Simulated scan of single mutants.
Amino acid sequence: MLSAHFASVSAFPSHSWQGAAGLRGIRGCCRAVWSRPTKKARCHSRFRGSSAWNSMFCKTAGPPSTLECNKAASSCAKSRRWQLSLYLFQNMESRSVARDVVSFNTAISAAIQGGNWRLAAQIFASISECAVVPDTISYNTTLSAFQVEMHWDVALQFLGGMQEQVVLPSVTGLNTTMSIAERSRRWQLAIVVFTSIAAARKSPDVISYNTVVNACARRGHWKAAMHLHEMMLTEMIQPDVISFNTTMRACNMGREWQAALNLLSTLPRFRLTPTTITYNTALCAYDVGQQWQRAIGLFDYMTRMSIALADSCNAAMSAGKTASAWASAVQLLADMPSKAIQPDRISFNTAISACEQGSDWLMALALLL
């Protein structure tokens, strides 16, 4: 369970979603979003006259129904008009229209579209004040809000609150939390969340494994990445090409280049087609193993298949920046325009480094100029 780890997480700052919860705070936030007169007028002009507006506010048979408001707010959110969606959500209360869980879920999504994760969390926190029971979509959508600014600590406390309410998080919600931890370079937390999936009586999916393997790869923990990869296969979970890309990258980080290439050779067994990222990772493996001839051969193959990018050439050049192959690395740079590949700063820096290995300072100076 995550409860043991939650105890070690520092207390929430004063601007946390729990401290700002309440309908009063939501009203203020919604009014702030809607406070600019020009934006309000522009949005009114776009929405007024539409069938949704007419059915809700221009009919004479009383206030609109909850279903009508939900449909209109959802339509606005899907068309990226999140301000209108929040405006409708706010006005449902002022017009005495009951709000259900769909109303709140739509408003949370709209707040996320607007990049306001605090408002999204406030809307979620107010659900219970309206005697509405949140569903799985409510939890998952609110968790995704914390990805806006990578608030891994808030996401963990949110999961802890779910456990206190005896609510089992879904695999999607746990995957989102792992992604936040991984992108925040908190690989240990990603592993803790991954192990909690079984405690929540859930089965991890391929996204779960890919996320936790990527967390290990960021820190070069190739043994853990390989163990997780093998565990996924043992559990009969079909890997995708991302599974292999991330595990290969972890092996490269641990300088286990042969293990990375062995993973590449197993792709046909799973009927997976290597992507440019897969081949680039293999090029990095050749670089780690100082296999410059094989790297150039793979890059030539990628060029013939029209899947080579500047990163591909840079990786091949890096493999060739040795005392014996530095001229090949410089030649790769010279050939990039003929292959319709635009060199970047890394391309020139790698070629200059190759010239340094070959003690050709005149060529290095020419590349600088």
Rank of each mutant, 00 (worst) to 15 (best):
H229G: 14
I191V: 06
G220E: 10
A199L: 05
A181K: 04
I180P: 14
S203L: 08
S208Y: 09
Q188M: 03
T195C: 15
M231Y: 14
S203I: 01
A198W: 06
A199G: 07
Q188F: 03
W187R: 01
E235P: 05
N210G: 06
P239N: 02
V213D: 08
M232E: 09
I197E: 11
L189M: 07
M232S: 03
I207P: 07
I197N: 06
N210S: 06
V206H: 05
F194P: 07
A225C: 11
S243V: 06
I242M: 13
D240C: 08
I207H: 08
I180F: 13
G220N: 11
I197A: 07
R201G: 12
K223R: 13
K202H: 08
T195S: 13
C216L: 10
V241Y: 11
Q188T: 00
D205W: 00
V192Q: 13
C216W: 06
V206P: 05
A199V: 02
A224K: 15
D205T: 03
R186V: 00
W187C: 05
A225N: 13
S196L: 03
I242A: 11
D205L: 02
L233S: 10
R186T: 00
P204T: 00
S184M: 01
A215V: 05
V193R: 02
R218H: 06
H229K: 12
V212C: 03
V192N: 12
M236W: 11
V192S: 12
H221I: 00
H221F: 12
S196M: 09
C216A: 10
I207V: 14
M232T: 09
M236S: 14
V193G: 00
D240H: 03
Q188R: 02
T195V: 11
N214I: 00
R218M: 04
H227C: 12
V212G: 05
H221C: 03
M226H: 10
D240K: 05
E235C: 12
A198T: 04
A217W: 02
H221K: 12
L228W: 10
V192A: 14
L228E: 11
L233G: 12
G220D: 09
P204F: 00
S208T: 07
R201K: 08
H229V: 06
Q188S: 03
D240S: 06
H227F: 14
V206R: 02
A225Q: 10
N210L: 05
I237P: 11
M231H: 14
